[in-house]
Design a binder for these strands. Structure first.
Lengths: 341, 341
DNA sequence: TTGTAAGCGTTATCAA
DNA sequence: TTGATAACGCTTACAA
């Protein structure tokens, strides 16, 4: 033991066996509460384990049993509140079900996503919850090939079958947001979109277009602005004028746009109305209340864990889940009549 | 293999050995790049491993070697942006150094902290980075007893020796914040404090008192309001009047106070100036800029990982680190002369 | 340059 | 009710 660097001594079943005079097997059974052990024997073993400060060695157990009771959560960036909230719910739920979670960030980069996937498989996780980068389908095909159970969260591949996912109704969300602005009299609505290789971004954009169409508003390509999803900075891409409202792909982008508008001396919603997506403020108390789209992150997270564990347990015919989206009203949308057209 | 539920087939060294006709040992050496293997042999083995989709089994490796190349990050709540930013930096740094991270939340509860500690030790993590709950010292004594390398982050136990930590200069931060308000003419400064069993909270409060004293302002017990750190809601405890400025334990509390003040029809900083702590907005772009105290979270996180890995590697005489704090100016502090006294 | 065998700590199988 | 032994996949020491 002591020969290996940085290793702290661990009490083993063998140590308890030696001390009590029973065999390793007996100790193992006693500790696991298998009732083929005598009352007194069990008590002595339990007491000795306690005294020696025994903690079971999950590594050895995993080695023997073939599972680790761990799952991996692979997301874009834990410092993004949206991912942080989701991860919190996943960890809590997984924990309740006896699983520990590995956390890995992709930074929306395919190579990092691949090495995250490889790393977690090497560590023997029983399953993976992944918010995919989606620049290509390479990593997903790799995941499929390995055979490890996995569930996508928040994003999916519409064209790929046999892949499990929990997403929110992004198209409906995009529609609701746009409709809400339209009903407040807005016609020139700027969309601050994420990249379209991300399914949620693509579908929110589809919702936006569908709403415009339903309300007879002409679609104008120049009103779609793409914001780099890793930087969330639209100071350079936000047009000076030509719109009375903004629908942003995420609350983070919405906040940033709001900030940029303020710096330019524009008032929100006086000059420009803003609606975001994710409704992060349901979890984060901020002084100013951004109008947004609720995505029920807790439900999405809990569902994804349940799906994954069902997969791990070998369940078949697991249905993918699409969580509802709703308007979350705020103070950043007003009627266009009060605005400078 | 197939007999165990939920297990996906894994390619083993043995499979490569069988396929190529070499021994497990030879395969192992070839894959690890040990240069006692013939050129052709190595190439064949590498190619076969590739074809078969081999990924190494870290569990088995850990079993043999005694380490797992994993560390645990145990914090209050990952959905708190402060913890999320720290965790992001830790994960990135750990990753660069070849470690994967387990994430566990304590919810500031001692029992959850204990079970998090036990769980990670069971899973054989090589070390732990912990932001301790601090209601008692029980869990820390337990950690000490196990002998596992660990580093505290953000909070520490001033009375305990031989415990490693990375914290920020909370007392200086508290002093700077209070002084900043005083220099803006404020004398009636409300402190929205966290619980004093948390060292950072206690020291920020000490900084507050020290600044008052240095500037000859009488300390008034009734101006210390304790806010539950898990809820961050001060709507019920925030006094209606009797102060012109607020120094909040964290940005989250500051934001919440700001929100409550707005609801009450007070303007910030017109009626009340506010300064927070953590300067979360260095990472999160928000429209309104809260005055705060910078805590250099990246540096703190990176340092904590480096310390931990040094501990794991058996290094002695590791020094604890206290990261500097600074004023981060914002738009929530104004001179008192412009305020209603 | 390659192969054999032991061992890491646990659980399962089978025997006593 | 208890004990002995094999096995999980890998690395290391040593033998060929």
């Amino acid at each position: 033991m002591e020969k290996r660097k940085g290793l702290h001594k661990q009490v083993r079943l063998k140590d308890i066996a030696n001390k009590t005079g029973y065999s390793i097997n007996t100790v193992s059974h006693a500790l696991r509460g298998i009732d083929d052990i005598g009352e007194e024997t069990r008590n002595l073993i339990l007491k000795t384990a306690q005294e020696l400060g025994y903690v079971q060695n999950s590594i050895a157990k995993s080695m023997r049993l073939g599972y680790t009771k761990t799952i991996a959560v692979i997301i874009g960036d834990i410092s993004n509140p949206h991912f942080a909230i989701i991860t919190k719910e996943i960890e809590t739920t997984a924990n309740k079900k006896g699983y520990s979670v590995f956390l890995l960030n992709t930074n929306e980069d395919e190579e990092q996503e691949m090495s995250a996937i490889r790393s977690t498989i090497e560590h023997g996780v029983d399953g993976i919850i992944l918010c995919p980068v989606q620049k290509t389908t390479r990593n997903i095909h790799y995941l499929k090939k390995t055979g490890i159970p996995f569930v996508l969260i928040g994003r999916y591949f519409p064209d790929m079958k046999d892949i499990h996912y929990t997403i929110c109704n992004d198209k409906k969300g995009g529609y609701l947001a746009t409709e809400y602005l339209i009903k407040h009299g807005h016609k020139k609505i700027l969309m601050l979109s994420g990249p379209t290789h991300i399914s949620s971004s693509k579908e929110r954009l589809e919702g936006y277009r569908a709403a415009l169409e339903d309300y007879g508003i002409e679609f104008d390509e120049s009103r779609i602005i793409f914001v780099p999803v890793t930087e969330m900075d639209c100071s350079k891409v936000l047009p000076q004028d030509g719109y009375t409202a903004i629908f942003a792909f995420s609350d983070l982008i919405a906040w940033n746009a709001w900030k940029v508008l303020r710096k330019r001396g524009k008032s929100v919603p006086g000059d420009v109305s803003i609606i975001g997506f994710d409704h992060i403020q349901s979890r984060l108390s901020l002084p100013y209340c951004l109008c947004s789209i609720s995505t029920y992150k807790a439900k999405m997270s809990i569902t994804s864990v349940e799906m994954l564990i069902n997969l791990i347990d070998g369940m078949k015919n697991i249905e993918n889940i699409i969580i509802d989206t709703d308007i979350a009203e705020g103070e950043t949308v007003s009627f266009v009549c009060s605005q400078s057209e």
